[in-house]
């Protein structure tokens, strides 16, 4: 989940969810960054309406609960 936390941190800070930004945050947290993972994360996030998902997370926390990452 570190990668997701890093992304949401950037999102909440109003920053671009770019490879560089995510990498920088992860590295600042002392995480050994996997470039391919960052790339796939960025691609996936591009296809997600994060604002909407965050809203839905509150509406249906039951469904979200069992997802272990």
């Amino acid at each position: 989940m570190e990668y997701i936390y890093a992304s949401l941190l950037l999102y909440k800070a109003g920053k671009e969810l770019s490879e560089e930004n995510i990498k920088r945050v992860l590295e600042a947290a002392g995480v050994a960054v996997d470039d391919v993972r960052v790339k796939s994360l960025v691609a996936a996030l591009k296809n997600i309406d994060i604002a909407k998902v965050l809203e839905q997370a509150l509406a249906a926390p039951v469904a979200a609960a069992p997802v272990q990452a």
């Binding site: 989940m1 997701i4 936390y5 992304s7 949401l8 796939s40 994360l41 691609a43 996936a44 996030l45 296809n47 997600i48 994060i50 998902v53 965050l54 839905q56 997370a57 509150l58 249906a60 926390p61 469904a63 979200a64 609960a65 997802v67 272990q68 990452a69």
Partner: peptide, 22 residues
Amino acid sequence: ESLILNIDQYVEMVKAASLDAL
């Protein structure tokens, strides 16, 4: 098989992460 991302899975992860934070 790794190239095609499961977007739903990412959606669930984002949800889970936001719930964690909350």
